[in-house]
């Protein structure tokens, strides 16, 4: 696969079809990878592709307005690009999406329950050899963790989240690593008025994490980066997954599946369920 990725990247850069290719390269430790920003065809051979390519590179695309960017995109990264396009954050004609199929080689822990391993949108799809195209990835039940939480009593759940949020250090890695967290002034940084406490108190931490989860309802593509980035191990994905499930059950909406679809919070239908409004 990597040869095909390099070939495509080389071709795009040599023909000036893109100004930069964003992919993965090996880090200094010789094992993990780091995001690679390649602007010359001769540097293309530093690109790598393996189970350590965990980052969602869609997160960087907004940083190069007006530039033509080629990007290596896994299934989840591509869904993030779809949402960014839906929300008018990117210009489709400035992107060349090098879709990569993943799933056979389990990318990482975070991918264990990901059923969507093929790019939802791409200009070229680079496939794993010997794999039937479009075949589903992991079969593990994506909502198992959410359902286990739902089965518990409300007080129990509250206790659990109190415990988890008590460790939050408000480093905002969850926000910064998230392609969907692009508000020019995050609610957490606003001062006039300050919406919630800057203190690492349980109240402030609750307000921050829950507000963020709600702002991702119908937008989160479940790339799992927030949970992976969290240094104190808060299971943020369970929160996002719960809201994803709600959006699916109530509105049959799945974030990142179609550029043409209206974003969930930008659409209204008179037949929308109302029974949860009290």
């Amino acid at each position: 696969m990597i040869e095909e990725i390099r070939q495509k990247a080389k071709e795009l850069l040599a023909a000036s079809k893109v100004d930069m290719v964003i992919g993965y390269r090996r880090s200094g430790d010789g094992v993990s990878t780091v995001p690679a920003f390649i602007d010359s065809a001769q540097d293309v051979d530093s690109l790598v592709w393996d189970q350590n390519c965990v980052y969602n590179l869609a997160n960087y695309l907004r940083e190069f307005p007006g530039k033509k960017i080629g990007v290596v995109a896994k299934g989840c990264d591509a869904r993030a690009i779809v949402v960014l396009l839906q929300e008018n954050q990117l210009e489709r004609e400035n992107l060349f999406i090098i879709g990569v199929e993943c799933g056979v080689t389990d990318i990482s822990e975070k991918c264990a329950a990901c059923p969507r391993t093929v790019s939802a949108i791409c200009d070229i799809l680079i496939k794993e050899k010997g794999r039937k195209s479009g075949a589903p990835g992991n079969e593990k039940d994506a909502y198992a963790a959410v359902e286990a939480l739902e089965a518990r009593r409300a007080e129990e759940r509250l206790g659990l989240w109190r415990e988890e949020f008590s460790r939050c250090i408000r480093c905002y890695a969850c926000r910064q690593v998230c392609p969907m967290c692009y508000c020019p002034k995050c609610v957490a940084d606003q001062t006039m008025p300050a919406w919630f406490s800057k203190a690492t108190s349980l109240e402030g931490n609750f307000a921050w994490n829950v507000t963020r989860a709600f702002h991702l309802a119908g937008r989160c593509v479940d790339c799992g980066e927030c949970e992976r980035a969290c240094p104190v191990g808060i299971p943020l994905r369970d929160l996002n997954k719960k809201l994803e499930k709600e959006a699916k059950e109530l509105y049959k909406y799945e974030a990142g599946s179609s550029v043409e679809a209206k974003p969930l919070f930008a659409s209204y239908d008179k037949d929308d369920p109302k029974d949860f409004i009290k």
């Binding site: 250090i169 408000r170 905002y172 910064q176 300050a194 406490s197 240094p231």
Partner: peptide, 25 residues
């Protein structure tokens, strides 16, 4: 280029000490 502008490195650093002062309550 790859920096995400988060606070992980500074908050977890044993010597980083920059702080903010705000008024609350």
């Amino acid at each position: 280029l790859s920096c995400l502008s988060c606070g992980v490195c500074t908050y977890l650093c044993p010597t980083c000490h920059c702080f903010d002062l705000v008024e609350e309550e």
